[in-house]
Computed example of a mutant assay.
Amino acid sequence: APPHRADRITALLGEKERWSAADMPLIHMDTHLASAQPLLDHVAALEGLSPAGEAVRGTLLRWDRRMSASSTEAALYAAVRSAVVRRLAAHPAFAALTEPPAYPEVLLPWLGLVPRIAFALEHLLRAEELYGIDRAGTVRAALEEVAAEPPRGTWGDTHRLAPWQALPEDDRDAPPLSGDHDCVLCTSAVPGLTDLAARGPAARYVWDLARREDSLWVVPLGASGLPGSPHHRDQLPLWLRGDLAPVVTDWQHLTKED
């Protein structure tokens, strides 16, 4: 994995000398996106944009780099990023990679050209040379494309939880999510294809080694995988907010279920 999450966690931990179990959501839910910098560097270097393009450029350069569900600036950044990914994937330099590889279909989402460019974007934009591709021109065209039809809402309007399900349930509204692939709150979309997130923190555990009863945890949906169980999705509101539930290990406070 890129170092962004580890570096951010290290920086956050350094802000306080003492942390409690209850403080951990401050770290779990951090949405700062350090990997945005290479694209923003290209945006900052652009000149001679249209008035609408210049407005988008100014908004992106003032953005706090936080992928909050309520952020219109994050939605704008994500739209420009996706446009850059699509334009790079369509470049003739990558034409040979558009043919599906001779591997099982289950692996194709990880081997497809658009996902690979999406997850390698910061490196592609920082490389000294990229097969003769005019990256400045690509970013300019992507920014003007978004400026002509900008997103109308916030990041959470399109960045929603869409977990894979072996047994489809009844239709439910997909809740909005903060975070992004390289945030500490790692809720991964596939730029260029979809803002929906099928991947996120599978569980959050905080163990208090001095007082075990102060330990906390949460999972994305619930502790039961059985539809109809009261614990099938009862932790989802906590998980979305960054809240945690007590870890109960005292047998006197546990109830056996069939």
Results as ranks from 00 to 15, higher is better:
A1F: 12
H4C: 04
H4R: 11
A6Y: 03
A6T: 13
D7N: 10
I9V: 11
T10V: 11
A11Y: 07
A11M: 08
K16H: 12
S20Y: 08
S20M: 06
M24N: 01
L26V: 11
D30I: 08
T31G: 06
H32L: 13
H32W: 02
A34R: 13
Q37D: 12
P38C: 10
L39V: 07
L46Q: 08
E47W: 00
L49A: 10
L49H: 01
S50Q: 12
P51Q: 10
A52P: 00
G53S: 02
R57M: 11
L60W: 11
L60A: 03
W63Y: 06
W63R: 09
A69C: 06
S71K: 05
T72M: 10
Y77G: 05
A79Q: 08
V80I: 00
R81F: 00
V85C: 00
A89P: 03
A89C: 07
A89I: 01
P92H: 06
P92T: 01
F94G: 06
F94H: 01
L97N: 08
T98K: 15
E99R: 15
P100E: 04
P101N: 02
P101T: 11
A102L: 13
A102W: 05
P104M: 04
E105P: 11
L108H: 11
W110R: 09
W110F: 14
W110P: 01
L111P: 03
G112S: 14
L113D: 03
R116S: 09
I117M: 03
A118D: 00
A120D: 07
L121K: 01
L124H: 07
L125W: 02
R126D: 02
E128C: 06
Y131W: 10
D134P: 04
D134I: 13
D134E: 00
G137L: 03
T138L: 02
R140P: 03
R140C: 10
A141T: 10
L143W: 07
V146C: 09
E149I: 07
P150S: 05
P151I: 06
T154G: 06
W155T: 06
G156N: 09
D157S: 00
T158L: 07
H159W: 05
H159E: 05
P168A: 14
D171L: 15
P176K: 02
G179L: 14
D180R: 12
D180E: 14
H181D: 03
D182W: 10
C183M: 13
C186S: 15
S188C: 15
P191D: 05
P191Y: 12
G192M: 09
L193A: 11
T194C: 07
D195Q: 11
D195R: 10
D195H: 05
A197R: 01
A198H: 06
G200D: 11
P201F: 08
A202T: 02
A202E: 03
A203H: 11
Y205K: 10
W207G: 03
W207N: 09
W207H: 13
A210W: 08
A210C: 07
R211A: 14
R211S: 11
R212L: 14
S215Y: 09
W217T: 02
V218D: 06
P220W: 04
P220F: 01
P220V: 13
G225F: 04
L226K: 15
L226I: 13
S229R: 08
S229D: 15
R233D: 13
Q235W: 07
L236P: 12
L238D: 05
W239T: 07
R241V: 03
G242P: 09
D243F: 12
A245P: 01
W251K: 12
W251E: 13
Q252K: 14
Q252W: 09
K256I: 08
D258L: 00
